[in-house]
């Protein structure tokens, strides 16, 4: 009974599928799908490496500080890093006093309530505060930015396919739209052509416009590529502050597990030796 109905159901589903496949195949041949324009002009992220890459990678605090400077001077007006606290900057090598000063002098203040009137107000940040958001809410963000909401950057290198190389490519990849780009795909008003962006046109104007846009205190030449790379490195850190600790812990755990597993394997071998010996004896 089960088999009888089984075969009927099986024939039904399999038949449906073969029929659908046939229709699909005819459609595919008679009317082959065209690749969307976005695909033709879209480019994969540039091949760029970071010091934190790979199983032995480490953050370069100098670079992260430079990246923080770029973030502060170029990005922070529109993009928040709301999940990061000022105190976290100590991990980049800033002293306690420096962190305090950065928090207190941050151009956007932390929302608070007036202790006397209870009305909404702001106060200078302290290290325990998270970085204040540049816009109070999404509506305010959209209103101030031509209806495009600047994404928060805390997790951006984890929240985009392609990670930090994508961020780097996007920042350093603005070009003029190619001549052969169809009219429909050309950047409209308020949009900017960037082949690394999924639909080619994004609302963000090129943020890093030219060399020496920021002045690095450590003497590094601030080229466009350098700044883009530094801020991408900084954003790797904001997305995964424990990245290096993860790798270090990982090596310790792997080393331990390797030894433990070898011991367990030897133990297994010795426990089974008798049974295997019996097998050999019988074969002989």
């Amino acid at each position: 009974m089960v088999r009888f109905f089984g075969i009927l159901i099986g024939l039904f589903f399999a038949g449906m599928m073969v029929y659908s496949f046939g229709r699909g195949a005819v459609e595919y041949i008679s009317n082959p799908p065209v690749k969307a324009v976005e695909y033709q002009f879209h480019e994969e992220p540039k091949d760029v490496s970071f010091k934190s890459d790979g199983p032995f990678g480490k953050f370069d605090n100098q670079q992260l500080q430079r990246g923080f400077q770029v973030y502060k001077e170029v990005c922070a007006a529109c993009h928040g890093i709301r999940l990061v606290a000022f105190r976290n900057l100590a991990e980049l090598g800033y002293s306690e006093d420096e962190v305090k000063a950065i928090a207190a002098n941050w151009p956007i203040e932390t929302p608070d309530i007036d202790p006397n009137t209870g009305e909404a107000s702001t106060r200078p940040s302290i290290p325990a505060d998270k970085f204040p958001k540049p816009f109070a809410n999404n509506v305010a963000a959209a209103a101030a930015n031509n209806n495009a909401i600047p994404p928060d950057l805390s997790l951006i290198t984890k929240a985009r396919e392609g990670g930090a190389p994508y961020v780097y490519s996007l920042l350093s990849g603005y070009t003029d739209a190619p001549a052969e780009l169809p009219e429909a795909n050309r950047p409209g008003t308020g949009l900017h052509y960037n082949p690394y962006f999924a639909n080619l046109n994004l609302a963000m104007a090129p943020p890093i416009t030219g060399d020496d846009q920021v002045t690095y205190s450590d003497g590094t030449k601030a080229t466009v590529s350098q700044m883009a790379q530094d801020v991408s490195a900084f954003l790797i850190w904001t997305a995964e502050p424990s990245l290096i600790k993860q790798k270090q812990t990982g090596w310790a755990v792997l080393a331990f597990l390797l030894i433990a597993t070898i011991l367990a394997f030897l133990s297994y071998k010795s426990i089974w030796a008798d049974v295997k010996a019996e097998k050999k004896k019988k074969e002989a």
């Binding site: 433990a260 011991l263 367990a264 133990s267």
Partner: peptide, 14 residues
């Protein structure tokens, strides 16, 4: 003895 040792070592490691 050698066998016991390896078992003890493996279990201790675990």
């Amino acid at each position: 003895r050698r066998r016991d040792f390896i078992n003890i070592a493996a279990v201790s490691f675990g």
